[in-house]
């Protein structure tokens, strides 16, 4: 009896110590999150109800919901919202699909004597390391109608040149391709990590049971990669909604507003038109959009993970 009581006491004090230590370890992160995420977010929320030009000597003027009401009348707002969704969905789906296929290809143990697997993996990861503006400038040059490399190749093949940066619909595709190219590297790494955690015994027993390679991929690999797929879907879609510099550098939102993103409009209103209120209202709208979509995604994907 005495022993049990002492044990309980010890356990309680151990738990208390753990909580205290854990809290202390979390404190620096919490301070950073509050200082650099929570407070700025609240501040943006406040600005979205005010009129302000960003000058420290000018006071904010409260205008209520005026900035939000104005959004509907902003020229190109509808096109911008449509493209933001199309861009995010297309980039997310394509990135996850391409990276999954590439990860499966890069997971093959040997490519023969002269091809190094690590080198190939590094090649796919390089785009993720380059700054968005640099990538954008390179793609913009490649898409140049008159002397871009893509049109030169089409020309050599006897095909008609494509006006990548001035044609409605085509420019959107051009921007999406570039964004996918950049994001694929990171997703491949996550998939590769997931693939390596799958026990080889599962494949061995499936082979003994007579399962084909395709069946093994569909019945073992894909289900066990579900957590990686969830992570990739969530991170890629957030990155796609937040994308700014790469699409902007390639197309500047042209032609018309067909490749304009919410982020570009936030930048325009806040830092070009010095209308921080409208910029902040758009930012809040984007935060709500991302949060809602992530919630839906997580619910669906987690349910899928549970099935597996």
């Amino acid at each position: 009896m005495t022993l049990t009581r002492t044990n309980r006491k010890n356990t309680r004090s151990y738990m208390k110590r753990r909580i205290r230590h854990g809290s202390l370890m979390l404190l620096p992160t919490m301070i950073f999150v509050v200082a650099f995420v929570v407070i700025p977010l609240i501040y943006v929320g406040i600005i979205s109800f005010c009129k302000w030009n960003g000058s420290r000597t000018v006071k904010m003027k409260f205008v209520g919901l005026q900035n939000y009401m104005r959004l509907g009348n902003v020229v190109g707002f509808r096109d911008m919202l449509i493209f933001t969704f199309v861009f995010a969905i297309a980039v997310t789906v394509l990135t996850v699909l391409v990276s999954l296929v590439m990860a499966l290809a890069l997971d093959i143990p040997s490519y023969g004597r002269y091809v190094n697997r690590s080198f190939l993996r590094a090649c796919w990861y390089i785009p993720a390391l380059i700054g968005g503006v640099a990538v954008g400038v390179v793609w913009r040059i490649m898409y140049n109608y008159n002397n871009g490399v893509i049109n030169s190749i089409l020309d050599m093949m006897g095909l008609a040149k494509v006006n990548w940066l001035e044609t409605y619909g085509v420019t959107g595709i051009a921007v999406i391709i570039a964004q996918v190219w950049v994001q694929v590297g990171m997703c491949i790494i996550i998939f590769l990590a997931g693939l390596q955690s799958i026990p080889l015994e599962l494949y061995e027993s499936a082979t003994i049971d007579g399962a084909s390679k395709l069946q093994q991929r569909l019945k073992i690999t894909i289900p066990l990669l579900a957590p990686s797929i969830t992570i990739n879907f969530v991170t890629t879609s957030i990155a796609a909604f937040k994308a700014y510099e790469l699409p902007y550098t390639i197309s500047k939102g042209l032609p018309g507003y067909s490749t304009h993103l919410v982020t570009q409009m936030i930048y325009h209103y806040s830092f070009e038109a010095l209308d921080y209120g409208t910029g902040a209202a758009l930012s809040i709208l984007l935060v709500i959009l991302i949060a809602a979509i992530q919630l839906i995604q997580l619910i669906i994907l987690r349910r899928r993970e549970d099935i597996y």
């Binding site: 913009r140 898409y143 140049n144 109608y145 008159n146 940066l165 001035e166 500047k252 042209l254 032609p255």
Partner: peptide, 12 residues
């Protein structure tokens, strides 16, 4: 106007 012009910078 030359095709591609809208994407041109002054350097282009």
């Amino acid at each position: 106007i030359m095709p591609g012009t809208t994407a041109y910078t002054e350097d282009d």
